[in-house]
Nucleic acid binder design. Sequence first.
DNA 1: GGGGGGAACTAGACGGTACAGTACTGACTC
DNA 2: GAGTCAGTACTGTACCGTCTAGTTCCCCCC
Lengths: 210, 210
Amino acid sequence: MEDNSRTARKRAQIVEAARPVFLRNGYVGASMDEVAALASVSKQTVYKHFTDKEQLFTSIIMDTTAQVEGLTKMITATLDGDGDLAGDLRTLARGFLGAILEPDLLRLRRLVMAEAERFPDLGRTWYEQGFERSLKTLAAAFCRLAERGALRLDDPELAAEHFVGLLLWIPVNKAMFRGGNDLYTETDLDRLAEAAAAAFLRAYASRETA
Amino acid sequence: MEDNSRTARKRAQIVEAARPVFLRNGYVGASMDEVAALASVSKQTVYKHFTDKEQLFTSIIMDTTAQVEGLTKMITATLDGDGDLAGDLRTLARGFLGAILEPDLLRLRRLVMAEAERFPDLGRTWYEQGFERSLKTLAAAFCRLAERGALRLDDPELAAEHFVGLLLWIPVNKAMFRGGNDLYTETDLDRLAEAAAAAFLRAYASRETA
DNA sequence: GGGGGGAACTAGACGGTACAGTACTGACTC
DNA sequence: GAGTCAGTACTGTACCGTCTAGTTCCCCCC
């Protein structure tokens, strides 16, 4: 499965080292010398694996889109049970918050957005692979809930968009504009999740369950 | 009122020229030589008005917080009438979308977020002056509506956060990750505003008006 | 009204630094 | 022993902030 040849190992070293360098300093601010030094690799080796800085950057960012798997699993695991809908939505919301406020993911978001004009394909792909894919998974789960009569919705995708909007707009913006990660306590996050789930249910629960 | 002395004029020239340079290239990518050239001003003059690149940057970003006035006026002008609430909310939502998807404002958001770790004060101030202030204005307007019996809400600020979350999370993220400004047609925006206003009313309208 | 003094300005060179990408050498690995 | 790698020097470029020298503008006073 995983290629353990020397070439592959060196390449992995470079990628691992380059990620934090780009995350910390941005594309322009990142130095290839620092990448090589941090990877314990010579610059020649870096340029053997990646033609130039640009290609190294895009490779690293594109690799991160695989992390979405975690979110999609969380969605189906939480919503496809038989528990009470309100509790499940709260749990899912809380999980979303925890995942998306992870400091490294925030840095990645900042970086991709900052370079969205310099690397349009990068931004578009990241949005589609990360953002839209989890939205579609959520919409599908809502669809199943609607078929069981728990939700009332004409447009599952719109409902999914509204769910994440209610939940994430405020905390993500606050976190994106403030460097620190001590913005919210655990109970703050619980409260945010609770409020978003409740508002969502008022807007989208079928009448008999309310 | 406005200072027309040579000093003030030169300073204005520099600021006007520097804004697009920073917006286009980011903080690290922006060149002071380019700023001076674009302002038709010598570098000496630039450094007479601003001690260094950092101070020029923060001055420019801080200046933009004044633009919030437009949003707050829009809020009170739209919601403090006697018209039907649903229509007013739709109008307000549509206005928000138009304003926040302005390409230069998007670039500014990208820039401030990208530099939020390098300039923590900048990000925090921008968030508080721009973001929280309009949220508070909106919450106050909702409060007045609740007192007239049109809305049912325990926490006006939470309701305001939910309103903008429903409305903005999806289109703003899409726009931030994709460079182009041809993302949405006018009718797309109308539809987004309509859907957000409707969902908000389902969650927050008092029962008798539903 | 018209000089005159002084601050503000232009133009460009310069020092110091940092960086992308290349080239070379000697050592290690398979 | 052949290819790959570390270490490092090197080239060319870009940029910040300073400096010098000469010019223009503004304002006050006669």
